[in-house]
Simulated scan of single mutants.
Amino acid sequence: MQVEIWTDVNCPFCYLGKKRFNDALEKFEHADQVSVVHRSFELDPTVPTGISRSIFEHQSRKRGWSEVEVDASERQLGAAANEAGLEYSVSGRDVGNSFDMHRLLHWAAELGRQEDMLDALYLANFADATPLFGSADRLVEVAAGAGFDADEVRAVLDDPERYAAAVRADERQAQEFGVNGVPFYVFDRKYAVSGAQAPETFTQALTQAWGDRPAAPTLIADGDACGPDGCEVPQ
Rank of each mutant, 00 (worst) to 15 (best):
L104H: 09
S89M: 08
F148H: 14
R61G: 02
R93L: 06
E161C: 03
E115S: 13
A80W: 10
A164T: 10
S73C: 03
A108C: 03
D94C: 09
S66A: 12
F133W: 12
L121H: 09
L77C: 09
A79K: 15
G145C: 04
R103Y: 04
A108W: 00
P131Q: 10
G92M: 02
R93V: 02
W65E: 06
G92L: 05
A124L: 09
D71K: 11
D119Q: 15
E69T: 12
L118F: 08
A109R: 15
W65H: 12
K62Q: 02
T130M: 13
G78I: 09
A143Y: 05
D151K: 11
A136L: 11
E152Y: 05
F148C: 07
G134P: 00
G85F: 06
Y122T: 04
V153A: 08
K62L: 01
I55D: 08
R61L: 12
L118A: 09
S98P: 01
A108S: 03
G134H: 13
E115G: 09
H58W: 12
L104P: 01
A166N: 13
L118N: 13
L111D: 03
A127I: 07
V70W: 07
N97S: 06
A72R: 15
N125F: 01
A109V: 10
S73K: 10
V142A: 03
A144P: 00
E141H: 11
A136V: 13
S135E: 11
P131Y: 12
